[in-house]
Every structure is written in structure tokens, then in C-alpha cells.
Simulated scan of single mutants.
Amino acid sequence: MWNNPRLRGPMAQALLLLFLGLLISDLAYNTVQNLASRHIVSGWEFLWRKAGFEISFSLIPYSGEQNYARALLVGLLNTLSVSICGIVLATVLGLLIGVMRLSRNWLAARMAALYIEVMRNVPLLLQLFIWYKLVLKPLPDVRDAITWGGMALSNKGLAVPAPEFGQGAWALPAGLAIALAITLILRQWSAARQVATGAHFPLLPVAAGLVIVLPLLCFALAGWPVNFNFPVAGNFGFRGGATLVPEFMALVLALSIYTAAFIAEAVRAGIEAVARGQSEAAVALGFQPSLAMRLIVLPQAMRVIIPPLTNQYLNLTKNSSLAVAIGYPDLVSTGGTIIGQTGQAIEVVLVWMGVYLFLSLLTSAFMNWFNTRNRLVER
């Protein structure tokens, strides 16, 4: 039977499934026995019990009188905020460093190469401690904070004015939505016009002007229904305004600067993968070097850049769990506190796994869609 190829494959798969089933059942049995010996009751009822602990940084209202589910939600939002800010900053910085790496300017190219080599080879956790312990925490106290333009930087974080919107504030998002709709229409029209006539329409500056000017114009017509609450220094921190705690700033800086080095290498590889004749043809047609890079080289390089870029986005999101090392209340840190209070380790770990799995799959799905739109289409 084993020599029969029609039977050998199904038999091997059946044996593998049997082995996995036995392994999972053994793990489940040991888990149940260990929980019973420690008098730990499994289940999700603990989520609705009072948390009883405070969280130092929260994007939504939270107090220790609320339940564990609310605490986990606060941790999730903190993780998302760090990941999104880190991805945006890492993408912009990585693109700039990657282009600088191929610059004809000797100093710019060597500085970019030095940045890439140093940042890629220094562990992320060490960089996190450097930003937190050596850069942000030694800043002046609140009373001696560095102030400019209504903002203040101290060892308690960055305090910025907080907007307080009144009636008519809907005009700002309404104007932004109108500007985005006009931009999409202009994009389709400019693409059709360029195909028909070959004339290039300056879509980027026009779109930037629409997105900035139109919402402000709608907001002005509504009477500027906004007031700013400026931070005021107190004995133990700032009153009023909004404060970015040093843990958040250190984590975003470390994640973005570290990941940008890997993104820069992906950008460099993507640009070098484009045939040199493409840029030479653009110069022969009269394109400025910056315009040739933006319109000719980078769109073709994106087909090579996007797959490794996806991996770096996933790594940055998962590396945000290092926040526990500096006390930033992300999902892992908040869940660790809950485990210490309730002993519901299995449930909290399952929440961790589910959240990071969902975020990774969502990021991968978006980047795969983006990759599909940028792939080479053959006739």
C-alpha cells in the first residue's frame, strides 16, 4: 500500500492529522488539569469585572472603575496609534533615505549608507532605551520646559494645544470630503487627458491645494467654531491641552527610525531594479531629475518595493509590543496587568494572538490590493 502513490499521499496526510490531533488533545488535557490544580476558572466573565487600575495614557476616557474589557480596548487603541504613526514616519523617512542612498552627491549617499548600516545593526530594544532613557527622560522639568508656539517639551512629554470644537465644526470634514471627491474626479480626468493628448496635468499640487484650502474655506464660512485649550504648567504636570507622554514618543521614534533603515534598502533595491534606460529616456525627453524619479522610476520600482515593504509594516506592528519594556500601556502591557490580577492568562493570550493576527491579515490584505494595482499588466 505504501508503494502505491494514490494511497501514499492520503495515508501520510491522515497520519499527520492524527499526530496533530493527539498533540492538541494532550495540550488541552494538560491545560485543563493545570487550571484545575490551581483553582483557576476559565471563561470570559472576568472581562466585565471592575479593573481597579489606572492607565497613564489613553485616547478614550478611562478610569479604574471601568471593566477589564475597557482596559483592553484602551491598550488596543494605544497599539494602533503607535503602529499607524510609526508606519507613516518610517515610510516617509525610508523613502527619503533610500533615494539619498543613490544620490550622486557623495556626502548625501555616504550619510544615507551610514544611517542604514548603524540603524539596521543596533537592536531595536537598545534603540528604544536610548530614546527613552538618554534623550527624553533627561529633558527639563515641567517648570523649565522648552516652550514654543504654545507647545512645551519636558520630561513629562510634549504638551500641545487641544482643539475644542463647537457648533458648525462639521464644515471641516465636509470640506475635506468634497476636496477628496474633486481630487478623484480630477485624477480620472487628467489620466484620460494624458492618454488622449500626452499633456501632463499638475495633479499633485492642485490636489494638495484643494485638500488644504477647501476645508479651511468651509470652516471659515462656518465662523471658525473652534477654541484651543493651551497647556499650563503645574506642580506635577501640565493642565489642559493634550500631552504625548515620553513613552509614546520614544516608542514611535525608535520604531520608525529602525524600520526606516530596512525600508530604505527596499527602496534602493526597487530603484536599481528599474532599467537605466528608463531614466536616460526621461532625461532625453526633457524631464527634470526629480520629475523623472517621481513619474518614471518610482512607479516602476514600486512593483519591487511593495512586497518587502509589507513585511516591514508587519514587523513594525508586532515590534510595538516592546512597549512593555518602557511602561507604555499598549495591548501587551495592559493584558499583562490583567493577567497579574485575574490569573486568566489563556484568555488574555488568546486576545493578544487574535488582535495581532487580525492586524497582520488586514495589513497584508491592503498591501496585496495595493500591489495588485501596481503590478505590471501585460497586453
Rank of each mutant, 00 (worst) to 15 (best):
K133P: 07
L76W: 06
I55V: 13
N121V: 05
W48C: 08
V92K: 11
V135Y: 13
E117R: 11
Y132H: 08
A109E: 08
T79K: 01
A51C: 06
F46Q: 01
P61D: 13
G94W: 00
A112H: 01
I97M: 04
G43H: 13
A36S: 07
T91R: 09
R70A: 06
I130G: 01
L47V: 12
L47I: 14
C85F: 07
R38N: 15
R110S: 05
G43Y: 08
A113E: 05
I116W: 00
E65F: 12
K133A: 09
G86M: 00
K50N: 15
A71E: 01
G98V: 05
V92N: 13
F46T: 01
G98M: 05
H39G: 13
F46N: 02
R110N: 14
R70F: 13
V118K: 11
R120H: 06
M111C: 15
V99M: 15
T91W: 07
G52L: 02
L95M: 09
Y115F: 08
L59W: 14
F129A: 09
V74T: 01
G75C: 04
Y115C: 02
I130Q: 06
G43V: 12
V99W: 13
L80T: 09
A112Y: 00
N105H: 15
N105V: 09
V74S: 01
L35D: 12
I55T: 04
V82L: 15
N78W: 01
S56I: 13
G43N: 12
L134H: 14
Q66Y: 05
G94A: 03
P61V: 08
N105G: 07
A71F: 02
N105D: 10
A90K: 00
V41I: 15
S81K: 14
S83C: 13
L124C: 09
G98H: 02
L89V: 05
R104S: 10
R70T: 07
I87K: 03
A109M: 11
V88N: 10
E45D: 08
S58M: 08
W131A: 02
S81M: 05
G64K: 12
L77C: 11
G75V: 03
Y68E: 03
R104P: 08
L93M: 05
L89M: 08
L125A: 04
V118W: 07
L76Q: 06
M111G: 10
M100N: 10
N121A: 02
L102F: 12
E45W: 15
A36H: 11
V92D: 14
A71L: 03
A90D: 01
V122Q: 07
I116G: 00
R38H: 07
S63T: 11
G64H: 03
E54M: 14
I84A: 15
S103M: 02
H39P: 14
G94V: 00
A108G: 03
E65Y: 11
F46G: 00
F129R: 04
Y68T: 02
V99S: 10
V88P: 09
L96G: 09
F53A: 03
R101G: 01
F46L: 14
W106Y: 13
R70D: 05
V122C: 07
L35A: 11
R101P: 00
E54Y: 04
V82H: 00
F53W: 02
G94K: 00
K50Y: 10
I84H: 11
L89N: 05
R104D: 05
Q127R: 07
A109Q: 10
L73H: 06
R120Y: 02
R49K: 09
L76F: 10
V88A: 15
L134N: 14
A109S: 10
